[in-house]
């Protein structure tokens, strides 16, 4: 896979991470517009239509909608009510929708194998999507900087065994419960990245078999 693709993915994951960490909720509209513009620029080479659909949703969002983002964001991902699209891996993979069970702990273990642990360990579930995305950025960033093979392998394995296993269902939940363009755009971005991941996987397998 080309370095350019990975660089673009890094930016997209970083954007998603900031979003899920709640850091885009209170941007002023101008900053938001600039951010989206530069994100589009960075994505010039992107061929995935779902990702572009997401980017277009961002571009089309109005300043009123952007002001309402925090409310929409909280009702999907934070509360205080029942979470409409929980941002936790275990909320989807645990059969009883319970956090901090083996599903969460296996994410914790993955971090540990990469030599990392959460500063807020045991206060926030390790499998919150913002942490998973931050970890993905970390692995990818390390690889892009050092070209250490182990990093890119971990990156692929983590996506395959964790983030991509549940993010699709999570996106469905967003689509079911929200009509906010930015939240819907986020679901598109995530889905697009999953699709790209699958295509690349198939190609890789094809190469190996051929």
């Amino acid at each position: 896979m080309g370095m350019k693709n990975l660089q673009r993915y890094y930016i997209l994951y970083l954007f998603l991470q900031k979003f899920y960490a709640g850091e885009l909720n209170r941007l002023d509209f101008e900053t938001w517009e600039n951010l989206i513009q530069s994100l589009q620029q960075d994505c010039m080479d992107e061929e995935n239509e779902t990702i572009w659909q997401g980017l277009r949703r961002f571009v089309e969002s109005t300043s009123e909608q952007q002001e309402q983002l925090e409310f929409a964001f909280n009702s999907l991902f934070v509360g205080p009510g029942k979470l409409l699209a929980p941002p936790y891996e275990s909320a989807y993979l645990n059969e009883n929708r319970v956090l901090m069970q083996q599903e969460t702990l296996s994410v914790r273990k993955f971090y540990e194998q990469a030599g990392l642990e959460l500063i807020c360990k045991n206060h926030e579930p390790d499998d919150h999507i913002a942490f998973e995305l931050e970890f993905v950025c970390y692995l990818l960033g390390q690889y892009l900087q050092t070209k250490e093979k182990e990093m890119i392998q971990m990156y692929h394995t983590f996506l395959k065994t964790h983030l991509f296993r549940w993010a699709g269902v999570h996106c469905e939940a967003i689509r079911e419960h929200s009509d906010h363009p930015i939240c819907l755009g986020i679901a598109d971005l995530l889905d697009g990245l999953i699709q790209n991941g699958q295509t690349e996987e198939t190609m890789k397998e094809g190469n190996q078999n051929g």
């Binding site: 970083l14 991470q17 900031k18 960490a21 850091e23 885009l24 941007l27 951010l35 971090y111 540990e112 030599g115 990392l116 642990e117 959460l118 500063i119 807020c120 913002a130 942490f131 931050e134 970890f135 950025c137 970390y138 960033g141």
Partner: peptide, 12 residues
């Protein structure tokens, strides 16, 4: 925007 990548983690 916000904190940098890796700032939620520490080495272990």
């Amino acid at each position: 925007v916000g904190t940098g990548v890796g700032s939620s983690f520490k080495k272990t």
